[in-house]
């Protein structure tokens, strides 16, 4: 599992993240929601080792893979991008072909990745991650700016991958539908702190705090 204890991130005097305790178990999908600037991406970037923490502890008993909001495609073909990202070369060609097919990218396998559309790039970014056997997946808004079809593909691939590997997933989203569809547990961040957490049904239908109620109402209007 990933265990976070008294995690703090400060920029000068300003505290942008303050989480006393948070656990993500293997086989569990935890979805982090909250407005822009609430600390969602900061949390993931600290866990991925991209950002340093100011204080606290992060413990993980396995390898963590991270998909940033803007994952850069390499100057190679789509297929080469996935092959290049694989750690283990065992049956790599077959696994790569399977992933391309799951992500509906088979017809683009030989296309230069730099020429893909935004949505295709995000699917490729997920493909480069899941070619590996991950213990934990950190996904920062994996379907942002994506159409309905692309979103459905990504969500089904994430579900299938979790089922097959039993990995733990911590992801952020701005979509209540996605949170309901994927999450075992939803965490609501407000100004860098956990405002509420619970099962998606519980939290989305019956938030406990005034801020939580306001956020869910706004969220429903937005979507």
């Amino acid at each position: 599992m990933i265990k976070i204890l008294n995690l703090k991130k400060q920029y000068g005097e300003r505290t942008v993240l303050n989480i006393p305790e948070l656990t993500v178990n293997k086989g569990e999908t935890v979805v982090v929601v909250g407005p822009n600037g609430s600390g969602k991406s900061t949390l993931l970037r600290i866990l991925a080792g991209i950002l340093s923490k100011t204080d606290g502890e992060v413990l993980a008993d396995g390898e963590i893979y991270y998909m940033p909001q803007q994952s850069i495609p390499f100057s190679k073909s789509v297929k080469e991008n996935i092959l290049f990202s694989a750690k283990d070369s065992k049956e790599i060609e077959k696994r790569c072909d399977d992933i391309l097919s799951e992500l509906s990218l088979s017809h683009l396998a030989n296309k230069k990745a730099k020429k893909l559309s935004g949505g295709e790039c995000q699917r490729l970014a997920l493909g480069r991650i899941i070619i590996n056997q991950c213990d934990f997946l950190l996904l920062d808004e994996p379907t942002s700016a994506m159409d309905i079809e692309g979103t459905e593909i990504i969500e089904s691939v994430i579900k299938k991958y979790k089922q097959e590997t039993g990995c733990g997933i911590l992801m952020t989203t701005h979509s209540p539908k996605q949170a309901k569809n994927l999450a075992d547990r939803v965490i609501m961040l407000h100004e860098g702190q956990i405002a509420e957490q619970g099962s998606p049904d519980e939290l989305l239908s019956n938030p406990q705090t005034n801020w939580g109620k306001k956020f869910i109402d706004m969220w429903k209007i937005d979507t």
């Binding site: 963590i64 893979y65 991270y66 803007q70 850069i72 991650i129 950190l138």
Partner: peptide, 11 residues
């Protein structure tokens, strides 16, 4: 910057 973040995410 973004390339390093991508590479780090892929370990």
């Amino acid at each position: 910057k973004k390339l390093i973040e991508t590479a780090k995410g892929l370990n």
